[in-house]
């Protein structure tokens, strides 16, 4: 697992030396307020809230990738497994100071899971007890969008979604990431 340990080292180093820190509660409350406001604006239509969060994340990811590359100074990953390590050990480390576990690879190396032991976005959160949010809302869905936007900018089309969330009472928080294809042309993507 040389690429894993190397990615961990890079992530740690960057986190210590290059990252401006902000108060975690500020981030948590800001994000929580956005989600709660969306739930209110869409009148409890959680599918739509999930979609909007994903879209917001997508627009963030397309911008954040440049910061990631400028800071981390890493080159192109040789394969999707290395990409997964970079996402977990460097990306999540420098932006959220967590390193979700990469696991559950499919045999074709095109799909993996990120298992979040901690999730700064979801501190203090308890989903609304309206009987539906527990089944429909993916509170941290913005992260799926961030990954999709960021990887699209480096020519990878992926699909990401949550499959479980401790907020819903599941044992783990798990995101499934699948590589759809490598984008070969360099046409600019449409910004949503």
């Amino acid at each position: 697992m040389s690429s894993t340990t190397k990615a961990s080292r890079i992530g740690e180093e960057l986190w210590k030396t290059r990252v401006d820190k902000v108060n975690a509660e500020l981030v948590t409350l800001t994000y929580g307020t956005i989600v709660a406001q969306l739930c209110q604006d869409y009148d409890g239509n959680y599918q739509e809230v999930n979609k909007q969060l994903e879209k917001m994340g997508y627009n963030i990811g397309m911008r954040l990738i440049e910061d990631f590359l400028a800071k981390s100074n890493v080159g192109r990953c040789a394969n999707f497994r290395e990409t997964a390590d970079m996402i977990s050990k460097v990306g999540f480390r420098i932006f959220l100071n967590i390193a979700p576990t990469v696991t559950n690879w499919t045999s074709d190396n095109n799909q993996f899971s990120l298992v979040f032991d901690e999730n700064p976005l979801a501190d203090f959160v308890e989903l609304p007890d309206d009987g539906r949010a527990q089944d429909e809302l993916w509170f941290s869905n913005i992260l799926c969008g961030v990954l999709r936007g960021a990887l699209e900018m480096v020519q990878m089309q992926i699909e990401a979604h949550f499959v479980s969330d401790v907020l819903r009472g599941d044992d783990t928080t798990e995101m499934r990431v699948s590589l759809v294809r490598y984008i070969e042309d360099e046409m600019p993507p449409e910004e949503e």
């Binding site: 697992m1 100074n73 990953c77 040789a78």
Partner: peptide, 23 residues
């Protein structure tokens, strides 16, 4: 397949304009 190469340089072998300092 898990023991991926630690080499981050491009597959073509051309040097990147900014060589990664840590690799």
């Amino acid at each position: 397949p898990t023991s991926a190469s630690s080499n981050l340089a491009s597959p073509s072998g051309t040097s990147t304009p900014i060589p990664p300092t840590t690799t």
